[in-house]
């Protein structure tokens, strides 16, 4: 007698079938390309920058040529770019925390109930619109003939336009601008979950407003802060648009570096290598965060 499948097993089978098309499509459009990218990162470039076919495989392996691109990728000029990306992402994270936390605090703990959804939506909606357009708006503000300079000149605070475009400062402003909602949301989520009676208890036991904040609110909002920092930092190092539009050639970040190799730099395999190193770094950081969060019993609020 054949083994009949239980109802829940049949449900599971149906579920698995539903997943097949997704696996086909995403596997083919994500996993496969990434693997191929990995493959090309080992090839040397040809004259136009495409990965060159290997004629002699054994010689290729033994001579160590296969690692050529990766070795190249850690040359000082490229390391400087990586360092700059990390630095800027870190400062961006710090600024987003400083600027965003009070907003989350206000919405979660002070704003009247009926306004909360509206305020939160307002903070989040920009995120869903075109990043490109929003950053290009900053060009209008920061240019020599832009709005900011026009205003400062008009108020006689300066007498010559400030050189703001194509500077790390401009990139920083753009990064903070783009990533701020990523900090506000998770911090809001963890503050919203805060048991209000804990605040009352703290007050009852003698803590002033500030005491209650540092001893109760801040520690309990840590999961949200951690999630926010991760959500700001990790996309921050892979940024492309901000530095492309606001940073010029002088503030090149990893994203621009990779794109460069694919266009004027004429070295796609090197670009691939750098891109994959970037991905590996991102994955490593995410895994480290997940492990740390699980160890502390925090929910991974991503």
């Amino acid at each position: 007698m054949g083994k009949t499948r239980s109802r829940s097993q049949r449900k599971g089978d149906r579920g698995t079938m539903l997943l097949l098309p997704t696996w086909l499509v995403l596997g083919g459009l994500l996993l496969l390309p990434l693997l191929i990218l990995l493959g090309t990162s080992f090839h040397p470039p040809d004259d136009v920058g495409n990965p060159q076919a290997i004629s002699n495989w054994s010689q290729f392996f033994h001579s160590g040529d296969w690692a050529h691109n990766y070795v190249q990728s850690v040359r000082p000029i490229y390391l400087r770019v990586a360092w700059r990306s990390l630095w800027l992402a870190a400062i961006t994270t710090g600024l987003c925390l400083l600027i965003g936390y009070p907003v989350s605090f206000y919405i979660a703990l002070i704003a009247p109930q009926r306004r909360k959804n509206l305020l939160l939506a307002l903070a989040v909606i920009p995120f869903w619109t075109s990043f490109l357009i929003r950053i290009s708006a900053w060009r209008i503000i920061l240019q020599d003939r832009g709005a900011l300079n026009a205003l400062l000149l008009h108020l006689h605070l300066i007498y010559e336009p400030l050189r703001l475009m194509d500077t790390p400062l401009a990139v920083l402003i753009g990064l903070v601008y783009g990533e701020l909602p990523f900090m506000i949301l998770p911090v809001y989520a963890s503050l919203e979950k805060l048991d209000r009676t804990l605040l009352e208890a703290s007050s009852d036991l003698g803590a002033s407003g500030r005491g209650t904040f540092w001893r109760v609110v801040w520690p309990l909002s840590m999961p949200g802060v951690a999630a926010g920092c991760v959500l700001v930092f990790i996309p921050g190092i892979g940024q492309f648009i901000v530095s492309d539009l606001l940073g010029g050639s002088r503030t090149m970040l990893l994203g621009n570096l990779v794109q460069n190799q694919y266009t004027s730099g004429r070295d796609k395999p090197l670009g691939a290598a750098i891109a994959l190193e970037l991905t590996a770094a991102v994955l490593a950081m995410l895994i480290a965060y997940a492990i740390a969060a699980k160890r502390r019993g925090m929910e991974v609020a991503l």
Partner: peptide, 25 residues
């Protein structure tokens, strides 16, 4: 599957772009 679905969000857009370009070529 959940991992696969999160991949486009985790992997930087630059990398996805390069990968797809390479894939198509």
């Amino acid at each position: 599957t959940a991992g696969l679905l999160y991949l486009p969000i985790i992997v930087p857009e630059i990398v996805t772009g390069c990968a797809l370009l390479t894939f198509f070529s």
